[in-house]
């Protein structure tokens, strides 16, 4: 019973913490994100397992997390509000030659991050970018002016 509750709490707490830590741009995780994800995952693991190293405990906890994951995915599909809370919303960083300063600052994103995404799309200057959008998965989408 306690192990199941620990797993459920740990899952919700990790989702909440990672959500608050925020999105970082880039298609692949940098060492910075690797450390964050593996470290907090490892720390939570010790509290989840405790001294109950049985297969029964592991299976029970895995099934708990599977059910919770399914439940959250179900809620996300049915409630746009809940989906915004778990995943956030796409954010416009640049539109028609204007930066959205507040969005950039609060999302901790720099113009270098946007330019990196623009280069990835084959653009050589920020002036060629009509829209830059921070997606819910942390990637920056670029809509060029010559579309």
């Amino acid at each position: 019973m306690a192990a199941i509750l620990r797993a459920a709490f740990g899952y919700c707490f990790l989702i909440f913490t990672v959500r608050v830590v925020g999105r970082r741009p880039g298609k692949q995780m940098t060492p910075f994100e690797f450390v964050l994800i593996f470290f907090i995952g490892g720390l939570m693991l010790t509290a989840m397992v405790g001294d109950e190293a049985s297969l029964t405990n592991a299976i029970g906890q895995i099934m708990t997390i599977a059910i919770m994951h399914y439940g959250i995915a179900w809620l996300r599909q049915r409630s746009p509000r809940f989906a915004s809370m778990t995943d956030g919303t796409p954010l416009v960083l640049l539109e028609k030659g204007q930066w959205r300063i507040g969005t950039m600052f609060n999302s901790r994103i720099t113009d270098d991050d946007v330019m990196a995404a623009a280069r990835d799309k084959g653009l050589s200057q920020l002036a060629q970018v009509e829209y830059a959008i921070l997606e819910r998965n942390g990637e920056i989408s670029i809509v060029s002016g010559d579309r």
């Binding site: 608050v20 919303t89 796409p90 829209y131 959008i133």
Partner: peptide, 26 residues
């Protein structure tokens, strides 16, 4: 859409509330 030309689905009002909530959480 933004400016009636790019479908983004941005909800800036929600996001502003979320940033305020984030500051409280920190």
């Amino acid at each position: 859409m933004v400016h009636g030309e790019v479908a983004i689905g941005e909800d800036l009002e929600f996001q502003r509330r979320w940033w305020r909530f984030e500051r409280i959480v920190w």
